[in-house]
């Protein structure tokens, strides 16, 4: 059985349909790259999986838990999937350590010493244990994004959604974040990432999903998709990159 099952998902904003029947099954441990033009619905799809947007039709389930629009189901789902954003979205009033501990203590009611131990371990994993007491605005963009990853990992999710997590970074900071993601992938974390880093997608991902006008237009292993694009839209898209 697949870990994430997305079936016939449709999503509209007012009269415009942004997702037009998405089907995608993701197995545990898979690393999926979602590529496509601006406006093709990549972010919307990730946001739907995390319940940040409500879907109009279809169904999404994660590890058997159905996505339903009430707080109990949403919370259960969000404990299973973490999300990393383009803009990091760290809590500016909390230290790095505080950021990684907050949801553990508040949502999971983990006792503070235990939450701190987990926080230190996760920060160690992203190479930032020494920044435990720093505030987010004292860190570089790359460091902030790694803290955001540690914060999501601290909730022990079974999958991570990443929406262009390196797009807001200076070019020289991209690789340190990708290195962390690469390591997560190697450890068997299930990842769905929207990315413009084609080389990374080719090297690390098990499957590439090409989205076009609200549909999954082409999907396959990276060697297939990149070397032998089937549709003119994908050919054109790859030509631009």
């Amino acid at each position: 059985m697949s870990l994430i099952e997305i079936t016939e998902v449709r999503k509209s904003y007012g009269a415009t349909e942004v997702l037009k029947g998405i089907n995608l099954d993701v197995a545990s441990g898979e690393v999926i790259a979602i590529i496509g033009k601006s406006g093709s619905g990549k972010s919307t799809l990730l946001r739907c999986i995390n319940g940040l947007e409500t879907i109009n039709r279809g169904s999404i389930s994660v590890a058997g838990a159905q996505l339903l629009d009430d707080e109990v189901h949403l919370k259960a789902l969000r404990l299973k999937v973490g999300m990393i954003f383009q803009q990091f979205n760290l809590f500016p009033h909390q230290t790095v350590g505080g950021n990684v501990m907050l949801s553990q203590t508040v949502v999971k009611k983990t006792p503070k010493p235990e939450a701190e131990a987990i926080a230190r371990k996760m920060l160690e994993r992203v190479g930032l244990a020494h920044k435990f007491d720093a505030y987010p605005d004292e860190l570089s963009g790359g460091q902030q994004q790694r803290v955001a990853i540690a914060r999501a990992l601290a909730m022990q999710p079974i999958a991570l959604l990443c929406d262009e997590i390196t797009s807001a970074l200076d070019p020289e900071l991209v690789s340190e974040v990708l290195a962390v993601v690469r390591e997560l992938a190697a450890e068997g974390m299930t990842l769905l990432m929207v990315t413009h880093e084609m080389k990374f997608a080719r090297d690390v991902c098990s499957r590439v999903v090409f989205m076009h006008q609200g549909r999954v237009h082409e999907v396959g292993p990276p060697e297939e998709v990149f070397a032998r694009p089937q549709t003119p839209e994908l050919k054109q898209f790859l030509g631009l990159h």
């Binding site: 919370k75 973490g82 999300m83 809590f91 949801s103 949502v107 909730m155």
Partner: peptide, 18 residues
Amino acid sequence: VAKGQWEASASLGMGWLQ
């Protein structure tokens, strides 16, 4: 307060009051 703060905290499983 930036909208991303709502989204990040929601994605970590916090309820509205939290």
